[in-house]
Amino acid sequence: MTAVADLLDRHGTTYAEQAGIRLRDTPAPLYRLLVLTQLCAIRIRADTAVAAARELFAAKLRTPRAMADSTWQQRVDLLGRAHYVRYDESTATALGEGAELVRRRWRGDLRRLREEAGRDPAAIGRLLREVPRIGPVGADVFRREAQLVWPELRPFFDRRALTAAAGLGLPRSPDALAALVPGDDLARLAAALVRSALS
């Protein structure tokens, strides 16, 4: 088994998959990825962020409308159940504000953000940073996962993935890494590199 095949076998689950998101280019899965990104965008263990996303989704907070219609306390309680502590109150606020922004600006559909950005990866990143709690790292997390369904993002390997690739003796260039796997596996490879660095 090659080093890349072994890496994908051991660590190739995307964070969206782990959170139970079947990513497609439709409004609800893209919004759930945005929520996961908001949860991952602070210094907290990825597994805790994923567990928090699963709690929110199990409570049917899967669309901007449902998230905006939930109460702040409901969101705090759901985050607490996932042991998403210390940031639970500020994150509950950010989730509510983010849902309202997505509803107001993009009418609940992040494909409109994509079109507003002209499908330009850098512009997509800038618009994502307008969502509460999402900074440069969060915008990278979203684009790293969304490249599965938004081909214009390919190949997307953020700084953490590229550093991990270099540490494993793999190319440090996004194009060279992309040549190692089929296009549909780019998100898995990017996630695998990040996960391998964290393991």
Rank of each mutant, 00 (worst) to 15 (best):
Leu23Tyr: 04
Ala146Pro: 09
Pro64Cys: 03
Ala92Gln: 05
Ala165Trp: 01
Gly125Phe: 09
Leu170Ile: 04
Leu7Ser: 00
Cys40Gln: 15
Gly96Lys: 08
Ala58Arg: 12
Arg159His: 07
Thr2Cys: 08
Val137Trp: 11
Ala197Phe: 15
Gly108Thr: 08
Arg62Ile: 07
Arg129Met: 13
Thr2Gln: 04
Gly183Trp: 09
Leu30Gln: 14
Tyr87Phe: 14
Arg45Tyr: 14
Ala58Phe: 02
Thr2Ile: 06
Asp120Ile: 14
Arg160Ala: 04
Leu177Arg: 06
Pro136Gln: 14
Asp9Lys: 15
Arg126Ser: 06
Arg24Asp: 00
Asp184Asn: 07
Arg129Tyr: 05
Gly167Val: 08
Leu95His: 12
Ala3Cys: 06
Phe156His: 15
Arg10Ala: 10
Val35Phe: 10
Arg195Phe: 09
Thr93Cys: 13
Leu168Lys: 13
Leu7Val: 12
Tyr87Gly: 11
Ala166Ile: 02
Ala19Gly: 04
Leu127Ala: 05
Leu198Phe: 03
Glu100Asp: 10
Ala92Glu: 01
Leu168Cys: 11
Leu61Gln: 02
Leu198His: 14
Leu8Asp: 03
Ala179Thr: 05
Ile124Thr: 13
Asp88Lys: 13
Thr93Ala: 08
Val149Arg: 11
Leu113Val: 05
Pro64Arg: 01
Tyr31Lys: 00
Pro64Lys: 03
Arg45Ala: 09
Leu8Ala: 06
Met1Leu: 09
Asp88Pro: 01
Glu116Leu: 09
Ala146Phe: 04
Asp175Ala: 11
Ala165Pro: 02
Ala68Asp: 00
Glu97Tyr: 09
Val85His: 14
Pro136Lys: 13
Ser90Phe: 07
Ala59Ile: 02
Thr93Asp: 13
Leu110Met: 10
Arg112Pro: 00
Arg112Trp: 03
Ala190His: 05
Arg43Cys: 01
Ala166Val: 13
Leu193Lys: 02
Arg43Leu: 07
Asp6Met: 07
Val194Arg: 15
Thr163Asn: 12
Thr14Asn: 11
Asp9Trp: 13
Arg105Gly: 00
Ala123Gln: 14
Pro174Cys: 15
Leu78Asp: 03
Asp9Arg: 14
Glu152Ala: 05
Arg22Val: 04
Val181Lys: 13
Ala46Ser: 10
Phe142Pro: 07
Trp72Lys: 11
Ile44Glu: 08
Arg104Ser: 05
